[in-house]
């Protein structure tokens, strides 16, 4: 090995070592800071009897952060976390729609996107009915349907809860 080669090897070697340490540091901190928790709450939550889930309104299940309702006789669990920017979306009794207070997104009773800045319909959780009791599986997260999906057609049955909620 000639003199120049050794010099060049050392000159590159120390830079490579610095890069290696920086890379290892970045990888370590990335891995250390990534939460170990599974997505969602990770549990099946027993809720209410399937017969008690209404056809024309919703029931809130606070421990699942979800609403239960029936669409064509089938129970669905809609996440109350807005698909836009994670605000809690309340159900408006007078219009029969979900109206987000943060940025004015509106969803119908089935969680279909109606208007506002949200990029998709409301997210959902998988449900199972065991011995007549609805179980919400908060580990199984179902991303909301794209805008334009019409699971049900239910125009607002009354005035919106706050004026201006229909604003785009």
């Amino acid at each position: 090995m000639s003199e120049m080669d050794r010099r060049r090897f050392l000159a590159r070697g120390w830079k490579a070592a610095v890069a290696l340490i920086a890379g290892a540091g970045a990888w370590t901190s990335w891995d250390a800071l990534r939460p170990r928790l599974p997505a969602g709450f990770g549990a099946k939550i027993k809720t209410i009897s399937a017969d008690d889930v209404p056809e024309d309104a919703v029931v809130e299940i606070p421990q699942a952060r979800a609403y239960l309702t029936k669409i064509d006789g089938r129970v669905v669990a809609l996440s109350e976390v807005c698909s836009h920017l994670s605000c809690r979306v309340p159900f408006c009794e007078s219009s029969g729609q979900f109206e987000c207070p943060c940025h004015g997104s509106v969803f119908n009773r089935a969680g279909d996107f109606i208007s506002g800045p949200a990029p998709r319909g409301m997210d959902m959780y998988a449900t199972e009915i065991i011995d007549g009791i609805v179980e919400v599986n908060t580990d199984e997260f179902i991303t909301g349907a794209p805008p334009g999906t019409e699971t049900i057609i239910e125009p607002p049955r009354g005035p919106a809860c706050t004026e201006g909620s229909g604003h785009a």
């Binding site: 990335w30 800071l33 990534r34 939460p35 928790l37 997505a39 969602g40 709450f41 976390v81 994670s86």
Partner: peptide, 16 residues
């Protein structure tokens, strides 16, 4: 999504 999780230390705002 990963950035959000690293910032929050979990799926939503909490003790982490």
């Amino acid at each position: 999504d990963v950035t959000k999780e690293i910032l929050l230390g979990g799926p939503s705002v909490g003790s982490a």
